Amino acid sequence: MADGPGPSDKKRAPTSRESSRDGEKPKAAQPKPENKYSSGESSEEEEDTRELEGNVYTKNGVEISRRSAGNVKRTKEEIAADPEEEDEFGYTEMKIRKKYANLKKRVFVSKLEKGRSGMGISLAGHKDRNKMAVFICGIDPSGTAAKEGILQPGDEILEVNGTVFQGRCHLNVTSMIKGMPFTSFKFIVVRRPDAIQSCAVPQVTVFPTPLPGEDYSQFKGVHLVPIKKGTYGLGIMIIEGKHAEVGHGIFVSDVQEGGAAEQIKLENSALPWLKGLFEMTYEHKPS
């Protein structure tokens, strides 16, 4: 008598997992559309896992950093509880407080108008070269920052007009602020006790006097040379030192090939006559 089919010969019904392998594969979950505008609503969990690199646009169409306080995400309840309208950079006082609450120090907002000679502040880095920070190391008594009265030497700049500068090199920040296409600037700073001691330079207390009324008659060969700033600056290198004829000062040491200065045939010479174009000291740059 022929043997019947054994247990191993019987066909087994496929499981649901095997059916999905043999049949059409399930479609992968589609990623959520990215919110390219700031001030959206989200949960706290989304805020922790959100990608914070790159830029977004505020409701007013201004491009800001994703990491800016103007782009901080809030719950429905937080939005309803905020009586303040967002400014062009997406800022409200409550959003700024939420963004920097983890610092556990006082955060201040200062709105400055850019004057003819800047805003009257000098910036410096951290004296510990392993730490990146941007400190205000001096405030010109005749500048707009002093008149506005909020900023103080030792304040660390967190962001300006939606651009985050926390943890950045102060040299880059100086040029970035000067290159911003605004006449009004909102500085967000954090204030810590004795933070001025962390600055790479001593507190700046002496500021240059304005160009009008300066007497350069003591110098020989004084020139006024207007230089139109190019894409990469003025195209000169400068050093601090002493000159046999004019004494201590800041001097042009080199002219960049193809730069703005070379185009007007600027030669190595003393710098007093360029004072009206920009001011610079050995360790810091005014903004």
Rank of each mutant, 00 (worst) to 15 (best):
M1I: 08
A2W: 05
K10W: 11
K10P: 00
R12M: 11
A13F: 10
E18R: 11
R21H: 09
D22C: 06
G23T: 05
G23E: 05
G23S: 11
P33Y: 12
N35I: 05
E41V: 08
S42L: 03
D48Y: 02
D48I: 09
G54K: 09
N55I: 02
V62E: 15
I64C: 01
A69Q: 08
G70T: 03
T75M: 04
K76A: 15
K76L: 13
E77A: 13
E78V: 02
E78T: 03
A80H: 05
D82E: 02
D82P: 03
E84R: 02
E85A: 15
G90M: 11
Y91A: 10
Y91V: 03
E93M: 04
I96Q: 13
I96G: 09
R97E: 14
R97V: 00
K98L: 09
Y100V: 04
A101H: 10
R106C: 08
K111H: 06
L112N: 12
K114R: 15
R116S: 14
S117K: 01
I121H: 05
K127A: 11
K127S: 14
N130V: 00
N130C: 02
N130W: 01
A133R: 14
V134M: 02
C137A: 08
D140R: 00
P141H: 05
P141L: 08
T144W: 03
E148S: 04
G154H: 08
L158T: 02
L158V: 04
E159A: 06
E159M: 06
V160Q: 13
G167N: 05
G167P: 01
R168E: 13
H170W: 15
H170P: 00
N172Q: 09
V173L: 09
K178S: 06
M180K: 07
S184T: 13
F187G: 00
V190L: 10
R192T: 11
A195L: 06
A200D: 15
V201T: 15
Q203K: 12
P208V: 11
P210H: 14
P212V: 13
P212S: 15
E214H: 01
E214I: 08
E214W: 06
Y216T: 07
S217Q: 10
V222F: 13
L224K: 00
L224D: 14
P226S: 10
L234T: 00
M237C: 03
E240K: 07
G241T: 10
G247N: 05
G247M: 08
F251T: 06
F251D: 08
V255W: 04
E257D: 03
G258A: 09
K265R: 14
L266M: 05
S269Q: 15
A270N: 11
A270M: 10
P272N: 14
W273G: 15
L274Y: 12
K275M: 11
L277Y: 05
F278M: 14
F278Y: 12
E279S: 12
M280R: 00
T281Y: 03
P286A: 02
